[in-house]
Amino acid sequence: MTSGDAPFGAHRHLLSITDLGAVGIAEVMRVTDAFVEVARRPIPKVPALRGRTVVTLFAEESTRTRLSFEAAARRLSADVLSFSMDHSSVKKGESLRDTVETVTAMGVDALVVRHPEAGAPHQVARWVDAAVVNAGDGWHEHPTQALLDCYTIRQALTERSGIEPDAVGIAAFDGLRVAVVGDIRHSRVARSDVLALSALGAEVILVAPGSLLPTSLQGWPLSAVSNDLDAVLGTVDVCYLLRLQLERGAGKFLPSVREYASSYGLTARRAALMPEHALIMHPGPMNRGVEIADEVAHLPRSLVLRQVSNGVAVRMAVLFILLGSATAPSEAEALLDMTAE
């Protein structure tokens, strides 16, 4: 980092993409570039957060997101504690507040919170001094997913054009047409991605069956909404497929999964409707044969695995920005340049 300004504005936490705005997202991407470089080193680890403690507090199981955050924290040399709030501990009567206060009493610098209910990380942030990172709250937001999605899109676009990412900045998103397809209603990924992509200048089109769209889209920064995927695919630059969240009851909003797949699944036939340059993304885990066909998931234009690998670097950047701001900028720069002993 080169300046002492707080890149997340006045926010000590990352609860929503709205905390960042275009400037904050651009800053995260810039710091991420440095950590992607770190990942290519023989020992992909820096001492930037040595002595700091990061706790992952998950009230909803998500192995992928937890692993990604924990890998990010470890590569920054932070100590990592992992806390699972299963429903049995809730049934024992301990409130969310008591749990959070118990955990933070152990001395914690950052809390990475995943919770099945919208706004839970906001409540946690009211109760603790530690920085809180929203790792997914109900249907609300999943800000680090949107950040890694934006980072991955820019990476793919700049590699193709041969221009340095720093030279392009967020201009890469100007006028970019992104279709977000699937269960918008229940998707925190959709909410964060719509906010992030539109803040960066992209045109976002939502595509979903009527019952999987929120009743109101008032205030959503969208360029269009469609129920017809075939009609949209011809003009998109990115097709972002959402996971059909059958475990969250998405099934009762549809006649059948088969009917959904036949209308909204990205099959090889549909992928062929897209412009040749168009990219395919999915936050994972994929329901192959439902929202995405197996052969489509493996196309060169599919960025699914890149999203996963960039996830670690993006989360390193978020943790570094939130926790490293207590360090003098020059010192932070030095920490970043050192390799761990």
Binding site: H140, S216, G219
Partner: peptide
């Protein structure tokens, strides 16, 4: 209340 706010906040709404 089910409306723009509940939709943006991802909170189940009461129409």
């Amino acid at each position: 209340h089910e409306g723009g706010w509940s939709s943006r906040l991802g909170v189940p709404g009461i129409p």
